[in-house]
Write a protein that binds this DNA or RNA. Sequence first.
DNA 1: TAATATGTTCAGTCAAGACTGAACATATTA
DNA 2: TAATATGTTCAGTCTTGACTGAACATATTA
Lengths: 155, 155
Amino acid sequence: MKQNTEHAVEEFVERLGLVAQADGLPRIAGRIMGFLVIHGGPYSFSELAEHLKVSRGSISSNTRLLESLGVIERITRPGERQDYFQMRPHPYMELVRGLQSRLNKARQVVADAQRKLPEDWSDAQTRLAELGDFYSRLVDSTEMMVSSGKPAKFK
Amino acid sequence: MKQNTEHAVEEFVERLGLVAQADGLPRIAGRIMGFLVIHGGPYSFSELAEHLKVSRGSISSNTRLLESLGVIERITRPGERQDYFQMRPHPYMELVRGLQSRLNKARQVVADAQRKLPEDWSDAQTRLAELGDFYSRLVDSTEMMVSSGKPAKFK
DNA sequence: TAATATGTTCAGTCAAGACTGAACATATTA
DNA sequence: TAATATGTTCAGTCTTGACTGAACATATTA
């Protein structure tokens, strides 16, 4: 592999780690994802630890996390003891779920306040309604994106 | 103020602090915003510190932050030494900017990788294109939301 | 002038959570 | 059996960034 290419790969993997971090995920989870996006095909547990230069403990917890998010899948092979990992077919939509759940939580916080505060605090109620609408619209637009983004046909 | 109402207000303020935190903002910034959403009208620097039970240092840095984000505005009054703060007219759209800038950064990370990696790594390029499209669509849908969400007429 | 009021800055403390590495459990191989 | 391979767990370390409170600068009042 060319020197430059190798560097570009490393850079992408690291930067996706930072993207993940900004999204509230562990940096290593982002690195694993980046690595699999570039290199595709199943990689073993040990290979991931080795290439990414992180502890096996971190590989364990972060592969479990990405698995639970539906972003990667763990596969095993007859006669092999190691676990292998690869990206799932349409993983990115799963990534929005985290965002959606945060937005929904915010929407709920506002809704609770609207319900619990007196109706005759009309200024407060107005501002709460605006804030609530804002979060609702955000939820809706990501929702739309997810449904429109799925593969045209399942089969 | 009724006991229950008071409690509901406190709860909202605290929970908006957590929402802010999940969004990468300091908790206190969220509390200030929540307090102003409920109580409206200009509140002084000292009043904020007192009601929210946080240090003046934190009020200083967090009001500055919210000001720079365009979420609140600082107002002064002739003959008064204190600064006052209130929500800006349509503040919530400003809140999406942070999200948008994160998404754009992610989009850029992917675009850089697409450019720097060899074209004949077609599997990697395909997966990168998918990931890039994903971020692009997310940016687009929040972008649309912001523009459609503005007040129908300015003036 | 001294005393007070006000906002900012910054060094230090604290908390949350990521990461490591060792201990462990289990399974396989020699 | 012992030795090795593998993934998980968890106690401890380390990093990051929020928060405090004191020192400061400036302006006002007595």
